[in-house]
Amino acid sequence: MVEFKNVTYFYEGLSSSKVKALSNISFKVEQGDFVCVIGHTGSGKTTLLKILNGLFKPSGGRLYINGADVWADKNAFSKLRKYIGFVFQNPSYQLFEDTVLKDIAFGPKNLGLNNLEIERRVKNAVDVVGISEDLLTKSPFELSGGQKKRVAIAGVMAMSPKILLLDEPVAGLDPKSRVHILKVIKKYNKDFGVTVILITHSMEDVYMYANKVLVLNKGELFSYDSVDSTFKCVDRLKGIGLDIPDISKVFLKLKNKGFSVPINVYSVDMAVEAIKSILLKRRGNG
């Protein structure tokens, strides 16, 4: 379980001025949650994740992991890195070994595991993420952007974290790889009860995979709620430069006009299902 309590963060700007990146953020994430973090560019999403991972110390407020105050309890801090995995926005910041296989093994090695266990975990991660056999002996620098991303994710998964942080893991990928990677993450979340906190700019990802949404606006916590209740406030979301799928807007308008339609409709498929069931109901009545 992760808890932010009144967390504030300042960046040190040039000539010792201070840039406020986060102000007074409080929220709680339960183990096994899949949280999507959304917000306009520069709203503080990456900063939030870096604080969560213990890379930045909050300028004010506290961060609790499993009830322990991370910055007050040395023991808790040393466990933090084992406990939380972080996949960065740019995968080329972490790939460095001469083969993909070695690179995936780098994290588990740092945990001080024995070779057998390392091998098992690497194989597991490779299977889960779906990296093809012939890539494993290649240099990570010869891979395409999407392949690099997969290797980076596998490298973090191989550390078996209890909490997985991902900074825009599917930005700039083709639709097929997108869906694949997100499904892998979702499966990982379900099968192992791993908490996932994922930054995204795509509203489709949010309704497809998340069960909670954390909305940031200019460094402040705008809302932290279930997908349905977040998407209900379209107007407020629009006010901070975010949007919901067009199809959801149609259903909200229908509802406002007095039709009895569900409003938690986020894709055309869901819309088809919703209309079908309404029609069936009518036929049943009439």
Binding site: K50, N53, L55, G85, Y93, Q94, F106, G107, N110, M159
Partner: peptide
């Protein structure tokens, strides 16, 4: 940062 969070 990236390597730190991989436990280096």
């Amino acid at each position: 940062f990236a390597q730190k969070s991989r436990g280096v």
